[in-house]
């Protein structure tokens, strides 16, 4: 086991756009059975939003909580599968917009829905190694599902940002350990120039999501000497409401520890932001001393799992910026026609 010596979350922020479409409305368009829908509703970005603008929204909230000058941020890494540009980093625009330029590294990470936790690993390592004083890790996506495809019910928009520093006294939570579990699994992919992803339906559950998450978490607990009793909250990647609950069950984790961070029913699967927004939701309510298990999943496939311990600083810093609930509750329903315009399914 390789211990992390000093990497603490000094600021965090979650952002969800204002618009929602109900699963029922999508089912109405395609004549689907409304009795078994994967989520209640999902978040849809505004006409003027994309991964970069949502990343900036989340980053600004994180900076408010961190209370540091953005010029001290030495790395800005955005994990996403919906970069506005195929070539031209999102990280540079985000770094410029928050005022972290020019002494900064700023690449984008891609690993389907786990790109955000991957960025977080990288930032954590840079800070822990003493290469930078502060770093900003973001998971953000404006996910696209093919019209009529099962993914259309869940593919949603959102962003989560974390500023990592070294000093426990200014931290809201300490990153105690992380690990990854990765294999080549063809469960979901999108080639260049393609608008929508392809997926192998029979791979999605057992060989992909459950296999990687369960092994990642088991390895983390075993290697770093934790037991399930050390865990107060468990946050998993949330492609739908059912999967995280099944993952908890497979691992023997009490469902009551999983439900506080389970928000996909109201916002959908925000891809690279999904598990990180679950973490934001938990940080919005956790108490100092509590431990959070975080496990992402990215198709392709892999899972990053983390043990995060909440610090005293949470109480004060939480109140310095809007909680995630403010954004979840700020909602306006749109119908499929408006949704089609928002998600550029109508070409002008």
């Amino acid at each position: 086991m390789v211990r992390i010596n000093s990497a603490v979350i000094v600021g965090y922020g979650g952002y969800v756009p204002r618009y929602r479409i109900k699963s029922e409305e999508i089912a109405r368009i395609w004549g689907r059975d409304k009795s078994e829908l994967p989520v209640e509703e999902k978040a849809v970005a505004g006409l003027d939003e994309d991964t970069v603008t949502m990343a900036v929204e989340a980053a600004k909230i994180a900076i408010k909580r961190a209370g540091i000058p953005p010029s001290k941020i030495g790395a800005v890494h955005v994990g996403t599968e919906s970069k506005p540009y195929a070539v031209k980093p999102s990280g540079t625009i985000v770094a410029e917009a928050i005022g972290a330029v020019p002494s900064v590294t700023a690449a984008d990470f891609e690993f389907a829905c786990k790109a955000g936790t991957e960025a977080l690993q990288f930032i954590t390592s840079l800070v822990d190694a003493g290469r930078i004083e502060y770093g900003l890790a973001i998971g953000a996506d404006t996910a696209q599902g093919r019209p009529g495809d099962a993914l259309e019910f869940t593919a949603a928009c959102g962003a989560a940002a974390f500023i990592i520093g070294r000093d426990k006294n200014e931290g809201v939570a300490e990153i105690e350990a992380w690990t990854s579990y990765v294999t080549d699994t063809p469960d979901f992919w999108r080639r260049e120039y393609e608008r929508y992803p392809h997926h192998t339906a029979r791979f999605t559950g057992d060989p992909a999501y459950f296999h990687h998450i369960v092994n990642s978490v088991k390895n983390l607990l075993e290697n770093d000497g934790y037991t399930l009793n050390d865990i107060d909250y468990a946050v998993f990647h949330q492609p739908n409401v059912r999967f995280p609950l099944v993952a908890a069950k497979l691992l023997g984790i009490d469902l009551e520890k999983t439900k506080p961070g389970l928000i996909t029913g109201y916002i959908g699967n925000t891809y690279a932001a999904s598990s990180l927004l679950g973490l934001v939701k938990v940080l919005d309510q956790a108490k100092p001393g509590q431990r959070i298990l975080l496990a992402s999943f990215g198709s392709g496939a892999g899972s990053d799992s983390y043990i995060i311990r909440v610090l005293e600083g949470i109480e004060v810093k939480r109140s310095l910026a809007p909680t995630l609930d403010k954004f979840i509750e700020r909602k306006t329903y749109i119908d499929y026609a408006i949704y089609a315009r928002h998600r550029k399914k109508i070409l002008m």
Binding site: G46, D48, E49, D50, V52, T53, V56, E57
Partner: peptide, 9 residues
Amino acid sequence: KVEATLRKI
């Protein structure tokens, strides 16, 4: 009250 935010224009 309003606040500034970055958007695509």
